[in-house]
Structures are given as structure tokens and as C-alpha cells.
């Protein structure tokens, strides 16, 4: 028990004294996952909206692929991003393997289907007649899409949070394409893995607490969104 107590005490000390290493790791985590989520928003929301609003042959297949993508195993993403960025790989010329940029790419690949799937569901969950109502108010097709996205903004925010939550807590891909290099590509999850294996439980617990707080904040927002009701 002492191990846990001491670990927690030390952890809080590290957090409240703004230990430079813990701080640096946290900031890099937010930066990498934040950027990856932002990229996934552009791709995920636009493609998700298009798939939700159009009828085309093979649509069911596309929808099922997107839904499968929502549960993409990070290690598989890590593996393929590594292969692509490998020196002899198709994108090897970029020379970005084992950099934060590689981690952003991997995390964006993980988050995009999550955002896309939630966007698809959110737009489809709007009353079908709402599209007719918007057109009947004189909207062009583009105006209609924009109004629908605005109407779905809360579930879309849920998509953002889910995407961000998925990548900030992900460890497999980050360690594979980022390499967990101290002060350069070390993030909360990869650092926790390493410190735990070294027996540095205090640091590991501090990092764990920060991750938990982030998870709690994300769920707070999600719960708030879920509890709201739609207008008549």
C-alpha cells in the first residue's frame, strides 16, 4: 500500500510544482493529439456529411467501412504508418518517421473514422423532413448542408471529443511511429508505459492522473450533450 500512497503523494507534488518534464510531456501530448483531431475534423465532417446526405450504389458498404474504422486498432495503424514512412517506403522521402509529425499522421488516421462515423450518425439522426423544411425556406443546397451541420453541432462536438479521447489515450501507434524519444516525441501514454516498466511509479501515477483528468473532462462534456433535448 505504501507504494501507492507514496506514489500518489509524489505524483501530486510533480503536478503542482509544474515539474518541467511532466509539463513538457503533457503539452506535447495535447499538441500532437489536438492537431491530429483538427485534421480529422476537416476530413471526417466533410466526408461524413456527404455520405449522410447522398444516395449512391455501395453506400451501405461505405457506411460499414466507416463504422469498422471507428474501432481501428492503433497498433495496426502504427504498423502501416511506419511502413509508409520507412526509409524505403512510399513516403520515406519525407524523413519524418520518429517525429511528432509522424505521430500526428498516425493519430489523425485513428481519429478520422471516429469523427466521420459520428458525423454520419448525427446528420442522419436529424428529422428527415428538416431538409425539406430548409429547402422550403429558400435555401440553396450548400446553405442546406451548412444549416444541417449547425443543427447537428452538439453530436458533432461529441464526435470531436470522442476523436480526441481516442487519440490522447492511444499508445501503440505513438510508440511505433514516434519512438518515445525523451524531450522530443515522448507523450503521456508512451511515458507512462516506460516509467512503469522502469519501476518509477510516482511519475507514472502523475502521468496517469493527468490522463484520467482529461478523460473526466471529455466525459463531462459528452454527458452534458447527451442530456440535452432536441427542439420540437
Amino acid at each position: 500500500m505504501d507504494l501507492i500512497f507514496e506514489g500518489i503523494l509524489k505524483a501530486f507534488h510533480l503536478i503542482f510544482t509544474l515539474d518541467p518534464e511532466v509539463l513538457g510531456i503533457t503539452l506535447l501530448s495535447l499538441q500532437v493529439s489536438g492537431t491530429a483531431t483538427l485534421i480529422s475534423l476537416f476530413i471526417g465532417i466533410s466526408i461524413g456529411t456527404v455520405v449522410a446526405l447522398t444516395e449512391f450504389p455501395g453506400r451501405r458498404l461505405v457506411v460499414s467501412l466507416i463504422n469498422t474504422g471507428m474501432g481501428l486498432p492503433p497498433v495496426v495503424v502504427g504498423l502501416f504508418v511506419t511502413i509508409f514512412l520507412w526509409r524505403n517506403g512510399p513516403l520515406g522521402f519525407l524523413g519524418i518517421l520518429y517525429t511528432p509529425a509522424a505521430m500526428i499522421i498516425a493519430q489523425a488516421v485513428i481519429a478520422t473514422p471516429i469523427v466521420m462515423g459520428i458525423t454520419l450518425a448525427a446528420i442522419q439522426a436529424l428529422p428527415k423532413k428538416l431538409r425539406l423544411q430548409i429547402l422550403a425556406l429558400g435555401a440553396t443546397r450548400l446553405q442546406m448542408v451548412w444549416i444541417l451541420v449547425k443543427e447537428a453541432r452538439l453530436p458533432l462536438l461529441a464526435g470531436v471529443m470522442a476523436g480526441f479521447g481516442g487519440v490522447i489515450s492511444e499508445v501503440g501507434a505513438s510508440i511505433m511511429v514516434g519512438g518515445n524519444i525523451k524531450g522530443y516525441s515522448r507523450v503521456l501514454t508512451t511515458a507512462t508505459v516506460m516509467e512503469t516498466s522502469r519501476g518509477n511509479f510516482d511519475v507514472a501515477i502523475a502521468l496517469g492522473i493527468i490522463l484520467l483528468l482529461l478523460a473526466y473532462f471529455i466525459n463531462l462534456v459528452l454527458t452534458h450533450i447527451q442530456q440535452r433535448e432536441r427542439p420540437r
Binding site: L132, A136, L137, T140, I147, K150, P231, R232
Partner: peptide, 18 residues
């Protein structure tokens, strides 16, 4: 579009925006 902009429609459901 010009024609549609001379019309308005109200449905059984109010279909209000959030």
C-alpha cells in the same frame, strides 16, 4: 431557386432550428 424563394411551407411538425 428563384421560384422556391417565393414560397413557404409549414409542416405538421414545427421543425424548428436549435
Amino acid at each position: 431557386l428563384q421560384y422556391r424563394r417565393m414560397l413557404a411551407m409549414v409542416f405538421q411538425e414545427p421543425l424548428l432550428f436549435d
